[in-house]
Design a binder for these strands. Structure first.
Lengths: 195, 195
DNA sequence: CCTACCGATCGGTAGG
DNA sequence: CCTACCGATCGGTAGG
């Protein structure tokens, strides 16, 4: 294990950056090679195909979110603490690996069909767990009665803009963004009859 | 003016659908022609280039949002009424023209650079007006003190998921979605000291 | 990791 | 709106 980035690491990083800038389909293997500083065909010494780049980026991100949620759920915390930790998980991912997360959310539709099924299964499982958390909060009287499917979509969507913010403006008011989102979400969800 | 769709209308509709399904870059002129039912080169009897399809779709949508907001602001309503009408405007657009709105939000980065500047200016103006509305609410004591830039991004983002919902599931629980979003946003924003 | 190369597909034009 | 066609670029391979 060396500390410096291997050429393969650089390859994946530059690919992710280009996928964000131009989209997967409009990114050419030649373009990636140019960024890495090698000849186009040399790409194939590291990977089998262009698709492999997209698959790894998307699946790594998907597992990051699914595993991260798993760890948080194990703690068995009160609903709003769970939700706040999920917000932290999400925003930290965006700040630490903005290109990876953006490719994950914006380019997954270009995944080859075999992998696409697996991807959508992971994504659906993640959404179902969000819904279960909301339902638990509703049952416990902490969250007002809402349609958990609509609300899960809304909450996930609510955090999405942070991607473009970090990418475009390089401003990292991370803690401010986190607390602002947490307050907005808590106030939007909570049952006022409760303390 | 005929009531039936002209071939050019069908061309733009099928193009928009394909841009949503595969993205602009991965959509070929040949693919569009096949959907319309003509030969690839016949496309060029109606338009000058593939880019024109994207430009019209994106700019029409941008003007729809900008003009719609203009009409709402003219009414000079209380802040939360203004915000609720903007939610209606946004959700109605998604329900009535889901493909157009999705191309507008997801594919604008492929606009040719001359048009891109104009597009971003419109988009920025729209965002600035959202911020002005929020500031007005804060000044009037109706909205709690928030960073208007962060909050404007959040609100716009919050409505985004509805696009994929309408596209993928063909379920149109429009009124339910609208009122759910309005409540979530109002509760997330409002200053509780007020009535 | 490079040189040399290939078949496929792309957006678009000429001319009718 | 079609037939016929073009130069450019694509992802990827062979062989070293």
């Amino acid at each position: 294990m060396t500390k410096s980035k291997s050429r393969k690491d650089v390859l994946f990083e530059e690919a992710a950056k280009l996928f964000v800038e131009k989209g997967y389909a409009a990114t050419s293997v030649r373009g990636i090679a140019e960024r890495v500083g090698i000849e186009p065909s040399s790409i194939y010494s590291h990977i089998k195909s262009k698709e492999v780049l997209l698959v790894k980026i998307c699946m790594d991100a998907a597992h990051y979110f699914v595993d991260g949620m798993e760890d948080i759920l194990k703690k068995q915390l009160p609903v709003f603490d769970t939700i706040e930790m999920l917000v932290d998980l999400h925003i930290d991912a965006i700040v630490e690996a903005p290109t990876t997360v953006t490719v994950f959310t914006d380019e997954w539709k270009h995944l080859p069909s075999e992998v696409l099924n697996e991807f959508l299964t992971l994504r659906n499982g993640y959404e179902l767990k969000w819904r279960a958390i909301l339902q638990q909060g509703i049952d416990g009287g902490k969250i007002r009665k809402v349609d958990t499917q609509l609300m899960a979509h809304t909450l996930l969507s609510t955090m999405r803009w942070v991607q473009t913010w970090v990418n475009d403006e390089k401003v990292k008011r991370t803690e401010e963004i986190k607390s602002m989102l947490k307050t907005f979400i808590r106030k939007g969800l909570e049952e006022l009859d409760n303390g």
